[in-house]
């Protein structure tokens, strides 16, 4: 049986969205791209010698995390599309991270 057109989502708090006029405009997308390009340039600058190893690695991971989050939030619209999609995607990432940790622990145990 077809639902009436006025049916509300079963999980309204998970699918609450930002109104279209609050989503980024073209100029804002360009600004975000410039920000991402600057972060990439920063990564290359930090790569070359002169920086201690551990802070360098920490900085690389932070820069990558910021770039990842920026693309996911703004270009993939996760920031504006409600929480359910973010939960779905985060679950995939968490499972990937868990598999990685299990593999590391297993290899270390075998050695």
């Amino acid at each position: 049986m077809e639902r009436p057109a006025t049916t509300q989502p079963r999980f309204p708090r998970l699918v609450r969205r930002v109104e279209p006029h609050h989503a980024p405009g073209q100029l804002e997308y360009v600004r975000i791209a410039v920000f991402l390009a600057i972060l990439t340039a920063l990564e290359v600058i930090v790569y070359y010698p002169g920086w201690p190893k551990t802070p360098k690695i920490v900085l690389f991971v932070i820069l990558a995390a910021v770039k990842f989050a920026t693309v996911a939030a703004f270009f993939m619209h996760l920031k504006f599309d409600g929480r359910l999609l973010a939960i779905v995607f985060s679950t995939g990432m968490a499972l990937a991270g868990s598999a990685f940790l299990v593999a590391i622990v297993t290899i270390h145990a075998m050695n």
């Binding site: 077809e2 639902r3 057109a5 006025t6 049916t7 509300q8 989502p9 079963r10 999980f11 309204p12 998970l14 699918v15 599309d81 409600g82 359910l84 999609l85």
Partner: peptide
């Protein structure tokens, strides 16, 4: 879109 259970 409204007719799906998730709203998506």
């Amino acid at each position: 879109v409204e007719q799906t259970a998730t709203g998506y």
